[in-house]
């Protein structure tokens, strides 16, 4: 864009095709209606007027996977449903994204140990992009997850076919950060070593 930047009069914006596609894609993330259990109630609340997922362009809940970009798996996935989840995921057009919403979907939740019929995390069935924990998560948390999906879309390259970058710079998320002594792996290893030395029982 360097050559064309500012070459035209005011009101004309130049951009790369990639950025334009990414911008269009991130601001029209159409989710699929995929309420499986109680988290769906919170997903509906997110779509309603108080939280209003339409502000992010993701309010058009589609009843068919062919028209959807985003699958918000909201609720307990049991083994009978798992094959259907996979099938619906396969029917979605690329690029497709998955949000695992709620404790049951993320990792089995309270059914982790004794639930004989519950999939221990939907990432065993479909690749999950963003995990939103909670039982159920607040609507704000779901919006936060949606924003992370949008971050991911913004980072897509090679005419949006490539994989998103590894180190994303979240626009707003990541409030819980590691303290400075744990920032890098080396520092963290040092820290753990120091801790262990300090914790070694003294010679009696």
């Amino acid at each position: 864009m360097g050559l064309l930047e500012g070459a035209f009069e005011e009101g004309v914006i130049t951009t790369s095709l990639e950025q334009a596609i990414n911008w269009a894609r991130e601001s029209s993330m159409w989710p699929m209606t995929f309420g499986l259990a109680c988290c769906a109630i919170e997903m509906m609340a997110t779509g309603a007027s108080r939280f209003d997922i339409d502000r992010f362009g993701a309010g058009a809940f589609r009843a068919t996977p062919r028209q959807a970009d985003l699958m918000i798996v909201a609720g307990t996935v049991n083994y009978k449903m798992a094959s259907r989840v996979r099938r619906l995921y396969n029917q979605m057009p690329d690029p497709k994204f998955v949000i695992a919403m709620g404790a049951c979907t993320c990792g089995g939740g309270p059914y982790y140990k004794y639930g004989y019929n519950v999939v221990k995390g939907v990432d065993l069935v479909v690749p999950v992009d963003v995990y939103v924990p909670g039982c159920p998560p607040r609507p704000e948390a779901l919006l936060e997850g949606l924003m992370r999906i949008q971050d991911k879309v913004r980072a897509m390259r090679h005419l949006t076919k490539g994989q998103p970058l590894d180190n994303l710079v979240p626009a707003r998320t990541g409030r819980v950060k590691l303290p400075p002594e744990l920032e890098t792996l080396e520092k963290a290893n040092e820290f753990v070593k120091r801790n262990k030395e300090a914790a070694a029982p003294g010679k009696a």
Binding site: Y131, R138, E140, A141, L143, E144, L168, T173, V176
Partner: peptide
């Protein structure tokens, strides 16, 4: 009261 925790990986 941190309510909006999300993660990209397990």
């Amino acid at each position: 009261t941190l309510y909006d925790l999300t993660g990209l990986s397990r």
